[in-house]
């Protein structure tokens, strides 16, 4: 499988179709993989793919300081495919400038789990293929049980749970920086005229920050879990996002990242909408 991946990257770079391939490279141990940026066809052997490739590489597609003038090749797991679908929906880059190299692992995070190339080449084909692979799965399946536990709590218990979790927040913004959907040039937490969100890492500001970020991801988060994995203080941010994703699914029958051609529910309107929710 890895040879197919490298061959595809070699072709793309060799033909000049792309100026850069973003993929995974090996760290100091097999479990440690990290993003690598390949510019020459003879460097593609640095690419690896295994169940421990967990960073969401789509985060780099909106980074102006590293994107080349030409097209970019992206090693794309289902998480990247879905992220790219959302970013294209939100018109963050020219879709013709991103060439996806589809890959997937049967059980991410599990040693020895099977990995394979995806067949689709275009975003549309890959979206369909990913949707097929994930069929019948709650988008937040892995965290669904924990979300249910939280839903079973009283509001007071839930508040206490999140207050305790957020008390550890150091406001390093690793959650935001690891998230492909957090591409704002100036995040609301950095705006200080007025200061919408207190910047001190205290309960009030921490609550504001983490909850507002979850709201901003409504209908956009694809549940890759990059935020929770990036958090150095172990705050289960994926639970918040999973809960919001479920609300969106129940209200609008919509899941983010499966079709870049449909309008996103939080950024569209219908003139025949009854608007009963606005009082």
């Amino acid at each position: 499988m890895i040879e197919q991946l490298r061959q595809r990257a070699r072709e793309l770079l060799g033909e000049g179709t792309v100026a850069l391939v973003i993929g995974y490279g090996r760290g100091n141990s097999p479990q440690a993989t990290f993003p690598v940026f390949i510019k020459k066809a003879d460097e593609v052997d640095r690419l690896v793919f295994n169940p421990f490739c967990r960073n969401n590489l789509a985060v780099y597609l909106t980074r102006k300081d590293i994107m080349p003038k030409g097209a970019v090749g992206l090693v794309a797991r289902p998480e990247e495919v879905r992220s790219v679908a959302v970013l294209v929906q939100e018109q963050q880059f020219d879709p013709d400038k991103v060439v996806l190299i589809g890959v997937a692992c049967a059980e991410p995070g599990k040693e020895g789990a099977a990995c394979e190339m995806l067949k689709g080449r275009t975003l549309k084909e890959l979206e369909a293929e990913v949707a097929e692979r994930l069929k019948g799965r709650d988008p937040a399946q892995e965290v669904a049980a924990k979300v249910q536990e939280l839903e079973a709590m009283t509001p007071e218990q839930r508040l206490a749970f999140w207050e305790k979790e957020f008390s550890r927040c150091i406001r390093c913004y690793a959650c935001r920086q690891a998230c492909p959907m957090c591409y704002c040039e100036r995040c609301i937490v950095e705006k200080n005229q007025p200061q919408w969100i207190p910047s001190s890492p205290r309960p009030l500001g921490n609550y504001f920050w983490n909850v507002i970020r979850a709201f901003h991801l409504a209908g956009r988060c694809i549940g890759c879990g990059a935020c929770a994995r990036a958090c150095p203080m172990g705050i289960p941010l994926d639970l918040l996002n999973a809960k919001v994703a479920r609300e969106v699914k129940e209200s609008f029958a919509y899941e983010a990242g499966f079709d870049h051609e449909v309008p996103p529910p939080m950024a569209s309107f219908r003139t025949d909408d009854e608007q009963e929710f606005i009082k």
Partner: peptide, 13 residues
Amino acid sequence: FLSCLGCGTCTYQ
């Protein structure tokens, strides 16, 4: 340093 995400984890820890 292309892969650096620009978070504050390294400096805060």
